[in-house]
Nucleic acid binder design. Structure first.
Length: 178
DNA sequence: TAAGTGATAGTT
DNA sequence: ACTATCACTTAG
C-alpha cells in the first residue's frame, strides 16, 4: 500500500479531484481499518463563489489555506460532516470534497454521499486538519485501472452551479444519487 | 417534495 | 444579539 505523498495534493485542485478517483480512503480505528475506493469528488477553488474560501480565510475555512494533504472537515445542515482533501500550494486555498466511496473493507453503511461517507467512516471535526499522509485517516494508491471520468455539475450549491467541477467514475454504482 | 438540524458568517 | 444560509439526508 503506497500512501499518496504531499506533492500529490499540492497541485491544481481540478487535477487532484480527477486523480483522487480510484484511490483508497483508509480510516484506522484501533486495529480496525475501514477502506473504500473514491468514486466521486468535487473541486472547490479560492476564487470560486461556491467555495468556503471565496470570502477569504475564516475560522472554518482556514484549513483550505494551509498545507496540502490535510483533511478539511466541516459540519453542515445541523446533521452532517463533510470530508475534503486540502489542495494547492501553501497560501493558496483549494479543496476536494470526497463525495462517495465504493466499499472495499469493513464499510458498515452506505458511503454514497458526503454525509453518509463520514458517518460510515466515523469522521467528525476531530479529524479536521488531520494529515492524510500518516495517521488514522490516509489516502493510498489504487489499482492500475483505467476509468472513464465524467465531469458534472456540483451538487447542493447555489452559486457557480454551471461549472463542471464534479467528477465521478463512469458507470460506478456507488456514485451519489441526485 | 419538504422538513429538520445547528454551526457559521455577516449584519445590527 | 439576530438572522439567513448552508459543498445534506431522510421521510413521505
Amino acid at each position: 500500500m503506497r500512501i499518496l505523498p504531499r506533492s500529490f495534493y499540492g497541485r491544481n485542485t481540478k487535477v487532484v479531484a480527477r486523480q483522487l478517483l480510484g484511490k483508497y480512503l483508509i480510516r484506522k480505528i484501533g486495529r480496525r481499518k475501514i477502506v473504500g475506493k473514491i468514486v466521486e469528488t468535487e473541486a472547490y477553488f479560492q476564487d470560486d463563489p461556491a467555495s468556503h474560501a471565496f470570502r477569504g480565510k475564516t475560522e472554518r475555512s482556514a484549513p483550505m489555506f494551509e498545507h496540502p494533504g490535510h483533511a478539511y472537515v466541516y459540519f453542515i445542515y445541523g446533521n452532517h460532516y463533510c470530508l475534503n482533501a486540502v489542495t494547492e500550494k501553501f497560501g493558496k486555498a483549494g479543496a476536494v470534497l470526497i463525495r462517495s466511496l465504493e466499499p472495499v473493507r469493513s464499510v458498515k453503511s452506505a458511503a454514497n454521499g458526503p454525509g453518509r461517507l463520514t458517518r460510515a467512516l466515523k469522521i467528525d471535526k476531530k479529524l479536521n486538519r488531520a494529515d492524510l499522509t500518516k495517521g488514522s485517516l490516509i489516502i493510498a494508491e489504487g489499482e492500475r485501472e483505467r476509468y472513464n471520468i465524467v465531469p458534472a455539475k456540483r451538487i447542493g450549491i447555489s452559486k457557480a452551479s454551471n461549472k463542471l467541477y464534479r467528477f465521478y467514475i463512469k458507470g460506478n454504482k456507488h456514485v451519489s444519487k441526485i
